[in-house]
């Protein structure tokens, strides 16, 4: 990857780069960083059928980081996550996860490597019970690991106690917040190293969002789980994130720490209404 290559395209904010750098680190740092990077995305392009959605997207998530991805509707956030988890094929570029080249791997294989995707709209198996949904989350576990699966289930119930109450209920009968809990719990059941969450707070009451974020905080801090969070509530996302990326029209236009971006004039006017 050429560190001097400019990122360009509509919406790119070159004047901002002095303040919040979108450039990769210098060569000497980059080899160190790459060792730490759990997820490394280089010059990724992707889309649906004939329609290109992502243009030259590069980003990384280091071990133990909470990274937020923000951007307007249609910017390509969900497309990016779907490409990372293998639901959509990458057109060009390179995706590396936990030492594996996953650019052209299928979703079924990628989840086995420890990358779990909680898709937009929850996508629960609505005619199955909460517990059956959670157990399907552990589908990648070997048949012999009943004990480990049971323990994982207990941990998810401890983290999200509402799910234990609802375990025999059909997933389709849950409230929106409970469904999101179930989807996150299901995503955790594969014991991932990196959890991708698409639109955590969409359509949920503030109190429910707080509960979910607190639960995520617990696993993020205590278990060291890395998170890539797509979030339309920019304030919430940037307050919690170690680092964040701004996606516009399929391009990464800004990156920086959560606090840097919260201060950023462009982010404040475009996403925070300030």
């Amino acid at each position: 990857m050429n560190p001097t290559e400019p990122r360009s395209g509509p919406g790119a904010l070159s004047e901002q780069r002095g303040f919040v750098s979108t450039q990769p680190a210098t060569v000497s740092n980059s080899s160190q960083e790459r060792q730490q990077a759990l997820l490394q995305v280089d010059h990724l392009e992707s889309g649906y059928d004939e329609t290109r959605v992502l243009w030259d997207v590069s980003l990384e998530v280091r071990r133990g980081e909470l990274v937020a991805l923000i951007g307007a509707n249609g910017a390509g956030k969900s497309t990016l996550l779907a490409t990372l988890s293998g639901l959509l094929p990458a057109w060009t570029g390179y995706i590396r996860f936990a030492g594996h080249d996953i650019t052209h791997r299928r979703a079924e294989e990628i989840v086995r490597l420890g990358l779990s995707h909680v898709p937009q709209g929850r996508r629960l198996f609505s005619a199955l019970t909460v517990e059956e949904n959670l157990l399907l989350g552990a589908y990648t576990r070997r048949a012999g690991s009943q004990q480990a699966i049971k323990q994982e289930l207990e941990e998810v119930y401890a983290l999200l106690p509402k799910l234990r109450e609802r375990r025999r209920q059909l997933a389709g009968s849950l409230s929106g917040g409970e469904q999101q809990m179930c989807a996150i719990g299901r995503g955790l059941m594969s014991h991932p190293e990196l959890l991708l969450i698409d639109e955590l707070s969409l359509g949920l009451a503030p109190q429910v969002v707080d509960d979910l974020l607190n639960a995520l905080d617990v696993i993020h801090r205590e278990k060291g789980l890395s998170l890539l969070l797509v979030e339309q509530d920019v304030q919430i996302a940037l307050e919690r994130a170690d680092r964040a990326y701004v996606l516009e029209n399929g391009h990464i236009v800004l990156e920086g720490t959560g606090h840097e971006l919260l201060q950023n004039e462009r982010v404040r006017t475009a996403y925070l209404g300030a």
């Binding site: 639901l87 989840v111 199955l128």
Partner: peptide
């Protein structure tokens, strides 16, 4: 059964089933 549930899950939402690691 686990396999039976995987069959039902695939019938309900094939992409979500793939995300569970189910070889559809």
């Amino acid at each position: 059964t686990r396999t039976g549930n995987a069959i039902l899950a695939t019938g309900m939402d094939r992409d979500a089933a793939r995300l569970m690691g189910i070889r559809i």
